[in-house]
Design a protein around this nucleic acid. Structure first.
Lengths: 244, 244
DNA sequence: CAATAGCAAATTTTCGAAAGAAATCGAATC
DNA sequence: GATTCGATTTCTTTCGAAAATTTGCTATTG
């Protein structure tokens, strides 16, 4: 039994993976940045973060360093960290880069994709559909938990499509770009009433999946359109910071 | 005047940018990993690094964290860090990803490229040619300093080609992939006698540049061939670790 | 003899304090 | 009145030690 000042056992309980406080800091900071709890551009004072998360400098700085190389955090030499700002340009760049990466990954997946790969796509699509339907039945507002569940399944579906590309780098980049674009998607979705969407997202997913299973190059086109449409909607319904 | 234990002034002298010891650690570690001084797969013991670079845990860990997300360092939860291993698969993946990224960046640069962009390419090409010629005249061995100078100009040339792509992400990724592939290139070049190369690298560069200035799609093809050829040579002339 | 539990050493990880820069504010000067 | 210099305050960054964990070793047991 540990005689500790404060409360310092690290892995003690639970079976969750964290393992290290640095990892915890990373996860929590990332979540709070992506979800907008930590507003874009806002400076990240170490003392404040220390208080907020109950952690000490070291793990926080390590997490911030990592987030910086993922473009979620910005920092200058001796002037500390801040949440990376949002801008139209950044969103477009993220979107187009994502299209570039995922198009290639999708092509490669379609080339070598096996039965398990196909099964994974169909399963993820089904899970996504169930959640979407459930949410559309909820005529009232959709709460944050539902939002998160939806987003998670959405992620799983898109990941299943490219899962068989064979390139760890491409998959990593796709993940990273998913998170980056999530910053723009989530705030835009908050407060939106279920079923209000002018477009039929489910149909778009179906179209992408069908073309993918057919191993048709159309899949790549549909996927790009899907992302560009989302980007356009976000661009229109977001209140952008002053300048750009 | 600072009354410090040890020797702790941070920015004191010089005009170099470092600014922070964390940055110094990052730069030096990266150099040593890429150049092979820190052998692939070798575990990175904190105590040893502390001694080697004369730094303390915090800046070292921050640097390692950053290098991890750049795929140069590998780490497991409570088991510390190690130099990322080398393998054929990784090199191929890095090469193909680099081709994907730079092809797109080159296309975009060619679309919107202005006079300054063209001038930058021509200048970089010239600088590269001068260095190459100087080196080919040195019939003896080429030392590490020359190697580094050559590599730097080579980098500048390839960067000039894509400089006008307009996407910060694409440029960052290209930089990152440049460093990753450098790990495979450099060790392979060490000990090579000048002028021994079976292929005419200078001619390849010329070809790429000409096609680029012509705004021809050929440029993209030549670029890809250029990288694949390099990869093939490296694959052949490298002693790969046991398995893969 | 293999396997395992328990102990000791080595290593990573975290903390809190101290040191170093930058930002802030105010007074003195032009 | 504006400006610059200097001190104070705020914040980041770094250190060294303490805490938690893994690893390696040894003795014991089935």
């Amino acid at each position: 039994m540990a005689v500790v000042a404060g409360d310092r056992r690290i892995v003690s309980e639970g079976t969750g993976e964290p393992g290290t406080l640095s990892e915890v800091a990373y996860q929590r900071l990332r979540t709070d940045i992506v979800s907008g709890v930590l507003g874009a551009g806002k400076p990240l004072r170490l003392e404040a973060l220390k208080q907020r998360y109950g952690l000490s400098f070291s793990p926080l700085r390590e997490a911030l360093m990592r987030l910086q190389s993922e473009r979620l955090v910005f920092s200058t030499a001796l002037r500390g960290f801040s949440v990376a700002p949002l801008s139209r340009e950044e969103m477009k760049d993220a979107t187009e880069t994502r299209i570039l990466i995922e198009s290639e990954a999708l092509r490669r997946s379609m080339q070598g994709g096996d039965d398990d790969w196909e099964a994974g796509i169909v399963a993820a699509f089904h899970a996504l559909s169930l959640q979407a339907e459930r949410q559309s039945r909820l005529s009232g507002e959709v709460d944050a938990v539902d939002m998160h569940a939806m987003d998670e399944r959405h992620y799983q579906f898109h990941r299943a499509l490219i899962a068989h590309c064979g390139s760890p780098r491409l998959l990593d980049l796709a993940d990273q770009l998913y998170v980056e674009t999530q910053r723009y998607r989530l705030p835009c979705l908050v407060g939106r009433v279920a079923g209000t969407q002018a477009r039929d997202v489910a149909a778009e997913h179906q179209q992408i999946m069908d073309a993918t299973l057919r191993r048709s190059e159309d899949a790549v086109r549909y996927l790009a359109e899907h992302y560009r449409r989302t980007a356009a909607i976000i661009e229109a319904s977001t209140v952008w910071p002053s300048s750009a």
